[in-house]
Structures are given as structure tokens and as C-alpha cells.
Simulated assay, not measured.
Amino acid sequence: MTNSKDIREYIELIDHCLKEAVKAGNQYEKELQETMEYSLFTGGKRLRPLMTLKAYEMYDSYIHNAMPYALAIEMIHTYSLIHDDLPAMDDDDFRRGKPTSHKKFGEAMAILTGDALLNLAFQTLFKAGISCNDKSAVRAGYEIAKASGHSGMIGGQVLDILGEKRKITEEELFQMYRGKTAALIQASILSGAIAGGASEEDVETLRSFGEKLGIAYQLQDDLLDLDEDSEIEKSTYLSFHGQDETREMIQALSDEAISLLNGLEHLDTKFFQDLTGELIHREV
């Protein structure tokens, strides 16, 4: 599904707009342009910005209106990966087969590149809000900001770090999954839907869908990374349950997510229905 011709065209559009967004304005910005492009274009699937555009498209066909939110999401996701790879965090030397940012450019530039992408994300969101002067733009940006911060992605990352130092509870584990993984997936969907004019009822249904999809996505990651996580004694769902139970939980969450989409009978949810199945059965 994500390899179809129309999806590839969406991804090409996202890539083009990302290149335009980080383009250097003067010679002093060129080094940052190089480091930002290096991490933005490492072969990522563009899953989150794609969800933003497709969520918007359920309400309105002119997806260019949703592009600022899609770009901001991808910038935030990329900055988080850069910082995750740092020696003080996961200390990874490679990502998607390429040297990580700090290995390529040094720790200082990696930190600054992540900072630059985070700030550019919010610059992009504020610019969108100013240009359309619409309360929905502010709310869409708020969902992204909240999902990225202490009660979302960063809070989840904190729990992830704690889980490497001590045994966390299963309740804490799910809180970590909601923050580190599900929150940005939720925001990807919600920002697009809100910008497109979704009703309050739709927003809350999609919020629940995004959480269930995000947790199922992370559980599938746990299965795929089982050997690696065991080596570093990292807390995952598999620290509490076996592989068969984990697969059952993934399927249950997937079924619940699909049921939520089925309740949105007035919308074309086929993309998200197909995506749910694809993500929980992926092998990489």
C-alpha cells in the first residue's frame, strides 16, 4: 500500500517541500542545511507526514494546506532520532545503514542540528497559523506541540531511559509507549484532520485510533528488536509477556483500531485501514 504510485507521489512532494524548508538563506546557514538534509533524507518512510496529509484528505482534497503540519511532524521526528542516537542517549553509530549525525558531523553539530529542526518545525507551524488566520491552524499546531513535549514524546523517552536503569512497571511501560511512540502518530493524524475541518467527535475517535495504532506499532517493534533489546536489558512488553501474548495484544489493538475507523462511516478511511494491517505485520 505505501509503495503504490500515488503514495510515492505524496512522498516525493513531502521530500520536495522539506528541501525547500531547510534551504540556506545565506552562506552561514549552509553547514546547517547540509546536516539537516543528511538526517532528513536517510531513507525514512515518511510515515507520519503521510498520515497527516491523508487525514486532511478525508475532509478536503487540497492537501497543500496540510503540508506545514506534515513538515513540522517530520522535522520533530527527525530531531528526536538525532538526539536519541547521541552517546548520552542510545549511543548508536548507524541509522538506516548510514553513520548517525554525531558520527558524521560531531556531537556538537548533531545537537545543534536537532535543535534547528525542532525550532524550524515551530517556525513552520506559526507561519501556517499567521497565513491562514484560522483557529484550526492553532489547534493543529497545539496537538503537535503537546505530543512532542514532556507529556508526550519526551516524557516517553524519559521513561525509556529509566527502563534501562531499573525495572519499570507494566503501567509505566504503556505510559512510555503512549508518549514515545503513539503521541506523535496521534498528532500526525489529528493535525491533518483538524486542519481539514474535522468535527469534535471525529477528532476524539481519531485520537483513540492513533493511540491504539501507535501502541500496536511499538509492540511490533518489540518483537522485531527482541534480540537487541535483550542484550541491553531494555524494558519492553516482552519483559512481562511471551511472544504469543504480544502478538495477541497487537492483533487486539489492531482490531480495536479498525473498529474505530469503521465507526467513521461518513469518511473514506481505506488508507488508514490498509496502513494498520501493513504496520502490524511488517518485518522491518
Rank of each mutant, 00 (worst) to 15 (best):
G141P: 03
G152C: 04
A147N: 00
D134N: 15
S151G: 15
T124M: 03
A137C: 14
D90I: 02
G156V: 08
S131D: 14
I144Q: 05
R95V: 06
G114E: 02
G163H: 04
K104E: 09
D90M: 06
S131P: 06
D91P: 03
V138N: 08
D90T: 04
G129Q: 09
K165N: 12
N133D: 15
K165Q: 09
G129I: 09
L125E: 01
F105P: 00
T100W: 04
I161L: 15
R96T: 02
D115W: 01
F126T: 15
K98L: 10
A147D: 05
R96S: 05
K98W: 01
A108Y: 04
M153T: 06
V138M: 09
I161E: 02
A145Y: 03
D91H: 11
Y142A: 12
T100F: 03
D115C: 02
I161K: 09
D90P: 05
R139D: 13
K165E: 14
G152L: 01
F122E: 02
Y142I: 15
M109Q: 10
Y142E: 13
G155L: 07
L125W: 01
K98A: 00
M109E: 12
K104Y: 00
Q157P: 00
S151Q: 15
E107R: 04
G129S: 11
K127I: 13
H150M: 13
D91W: 01
A110S: 06
L159M: 03
S131W: 07
G156E: 00
G129H: 07
R139M: 14
H150E: 11
L125R: 03
D93S: 07
L117V: 02
R96P: 02
K135V: 13
S148K: 03
H150V: 13
A147S: 11
K103T: 04
T124G: 05
A137N: 07
G129V: 10
G114N: 01
F94G: 08
H150C: 13
S148P: 03
H150S: 11
G163K: 06
T124V: 08
L120A: 09
D93K: 10
M153K: 07
F122N: 01
